[in-house]
Design a protein around this nucleic acid. Structure first.
Lengths: 242, 242
DNA sequence: ACGGCGTTTGCGGGATCACGCAGCCGCAGT
DNA sequence: ACTGCGGCTGCGTGATCCCGCAAACGCCGT
């Protein structure tokens, strides 16, 4: 049994090695990568390897690496081992996991026991193991209450990037008015209402406020913004070339 | 020699204990706290203790704990040991460090050697030891180029929170026009110009774009927003009571 | 005192944004 | 076919925002 560890923090990496040694004695080969690039290359050289991977690393993200790896080999088993349970990450992952693939999501703050169970569950029993802090997010984001539609989320990201209504309309193939309607829905779900009584002067700029609470509620985070920013640059380039 | 360790991640805590055992054999008593509250209480019970502290912890932040500790005992030596080198944290610290206090700031990604040198430098030699990734930020933020005035930074935070120009003016005691001028300076320094030729339709909402860039450049982060949000609530309460 | 420089403030216009209203379309259920 | 519901769209209004212009104020150096 081969294992590929992708983690850029040496401290966490050594902890991981230790836990794996204890929990998975049937693992006889361990490879290591410190970023998404190397991870993809190593995964290609060792097609049978299971993967334990950190999200947010310098250079190529864990999510990006997972996407290309899964595209080439959809049944690869991947355990994501991350610091955060932000919706931005959970949403990113649940969008790229192929059907039938066994995967897991364990927080770094989890106990040793939880990590060991996840390792054995995924790689030996082929089950999906997801910490329930994360699981909560997952249902909420796919379910109804307080959850965001995929297209609402896209618009939310666009205003966070600083696009105008018109630019969003063009980018997403909507009319100007539809974009504004979506904004209204977003303001609703984020409870960014105007607390002032009628006749009072407004205190909040809804657009900016929405971004603020989205960040506070961890719908958005630094990594998600970086990815979106990169996509935006691509779109802008292809657009001015017209 | 007494030492107080403030760190909520057990993994990092055990690493810290180990490094201290190796680097500071003259340390004979070690106390531990997992959040800002306990840290303040423990610091009061052991007034002679030096402190190694994580920033961002659940509940009371390291910055907040440091502020109250330094207020009670300005010469306490504190080594901040943090994941990030965001300007938001650096700015927060350099605002509260009392003159004459020895303190340090090392990143968790630093080598063991760097951590050991910092421990000995601060607690035995009474010097300030600051990783130069952080040091770079510090000069840039206090210096001229690309740096932000304290008042510009305040306004930046306010728009990130979602306040209107008028509300910012009221809160900071400025005229509406002055706020807008500050916004213009901020847009300048963030290089959030309008790249379009004259007559073209604008693609960016400057206000929202500025927040986005500020986050991407790590001038703002989640923790800073949370703190600012709390202050904002306080201000709003005292204002409607009028 | 006299200019020079930066900051603050008011005024005004043009563009954008927030949003109610109304019409259009597709899609279920009776 | 009729009806109701939800999403998309255009129009119009009022508030906000962006910014150029100009006047007032403090501060510094010759």
């Amino acid at each position: 049994m081969k294992l590929l560890l992708v983690e850029d923090d040496p401290l966490h990496l050594s902890y991981l090695r230790e836990q794996i040694g204890g929990a998975l004695p049937e693992c006889d080969e361990v490879f290591e990568a410190a970023n998404g690039q190397d991870a993809e290359a190593l995964a290609r050289r060792h097609p049978a390897a299971d993967i334990v991977m950190d999200l947010q690393m310098a250079g190529r993200t864990g999510i990006e690496a997972a996407r290309t790896i899964w595209r080439e080999r959809p049944l690869t088993r991947i355990l994501f081992w991350s610091n955060y349970s932000d919706e931005a990450y959970v949403r990113g992952i649940s969008r790229i996991v192929p059907m039938g693939a066994a995967y897991g999501y364990v927080l770094k703050s989890a106990s040793e026991e939880r990590l060991r169970l996840a390792l054995r569950g995924i790689f030996l029993q082929n089950q999906c193991v997801i910490d329930n802090e994360v699981r909560g997010l997952q249902q909420r984001s796919l379910g109804q209450s307080g959850g965001f539609t995929e297209s609402e989320y896209e618009v939310l990201v666009d205003i966070a990037l600083g696009l105008t209504d018109r630019a969003i309309a063009e980018r997403r193939g909507l009319s100007l008015r539809s974009v504004q309607n979506r904004l209204h829905q977003i303001y609703d779900k984020l409870e960014v209402s105007r607390p002032e009584a009628a006749g009072e002067e407004p205190v909040l700029n809804l657009r900016a406020r929405a971004v603020s609470v989205a960040i506070l509620r961890k719908l958005l985070n630094h990594g998600a913004l970086e990815r979106a920013e990169a996509e935006l640059r691509g779109w802008l380039a292809g657009r001015t070339r017209h």
